[in-house]
């Protein structure tokens, strides 16, 4: 166990040095989220009317969610790069913990997601978004977002290990994320959807995460409807995310063993 921790820590250190030395990595977690906040805040925000809701209050939780999910692709691409050079063979020839390699990558990518959250919060604040609740409640919202981010990152790692090709990861990642993103309450209220589609969208974990964040931050929400997911978004979000995590992580660890044994 202590080996697992020290190996994981050493490899997290490796990735943190990368973040400091590869400017693109920092740009991807700063420029892109800022662009999203501004685009939704000013471009879409000026055209969107959600009845009874101040849109700048409404969309921020959605942007946070989207950026967390986007972490999937960059992790998947990074895993493909790692597999492509001889470093994986070297790690596997060492008497170290195997899963530490994946821990190193996923934990440091989670740190990038956290940095993105901080940057977006600052920009959001500048354009008028506020958290109206207390400290713990605010923290709870961010914790839920990071849990979503971590699940997405492990999903990306699994995708990278299964496909072993960076381009395939980016395109398939997009195909997987898009329907989840649009069939959710991240940017638009679900009231306008046809009945059956609304039921699907309600159970979408991204809807649950966004609505929980709105609730926890005291932002205006449109989730107030009927049905279990609308009334208990936090419970749905937690249960679904933890379940996904428990399925994805062992799968990723297993395919790591397989992918590198060629």
């Amino acid at each position: 166990m202590s080996e697992f921790v020290s190996d994981g820590w050493a490899l997290i250190g490796r990735h943190l040095r990368h973040i400091a030395r590869v400017p693109q990595k920092l740009l991807s977690v700063t420029i892109m989220p800022v662009a999203f906040v501004l685009a939704f805040g000013y471009v879409l925000g000026s055209a969107m009317e959600v009845p009874g809701v101040e849109y700048r209050e409404y969309f921020m939780a959605g942007v946070f969610t989207q950026v967390m999910v986007a972490g999937m692709t960059s992790t998947g691409v990074g895993v493909c790069e790692d597999l492509g050079n001889g470093l994986m063979d070297r790690f596997r020839s060492l008497p170290m913990s195997r899963s530490a390699v994946l821990i190193g990558r996923t934990v440091s990518d989670l740190l990038l997601s956290a940095i993105a959250c901080v940057v977006m919060s600052v920009v959001g604040f500048a354009i008028g978004w506020r958290i109206h609740t207390g400290f713990w409640s605010a923290l709870g919202g961010f914790a839920l977002l990071l849990l979503l981010g971590f699940v997405a990152i492990w999903g990306g790692a699994l995708l990278g290990l299964a496909l072993r090709n960076a381009e395939a990861v980016s395109s398939l990642g997009f195909v997987i994320v898009m329907p989840f993103m649009f069939l959710s309450s991240a940017f638009v209220p679900l009231n306008g959807l046809p009945h059956w589609l609304r039921e699907v969208a309600k159970w979408n974990p991204l809807s649950a995460v966004t609505d929980s964040c709105r609730e926890l931050w005291g932002n205006e929400t449109t989730a107030a409807g009927t049905g279990f997911p609308a009334e208990h978004p936090g419970t749905v979000a937690l249960v679904v995310l933890v379940a996904m995590f428990l399925i994805i992580v062992p799968m990723a660890v297993r395919s790591f063993g397989k992918a590198t044994a060629r």
Partner: peptide, 16 residues
């Protein structure tokens, strides 16, 4: 992306 020293120290750490 790591220096020569960092590379060797990382591998050494992973050898425990």
């Amino acid at each position: 992306r790591l220096t020569g020293l960092e590379n060797l120290r990382l591998i050494g750490t992973l050898y425990h």
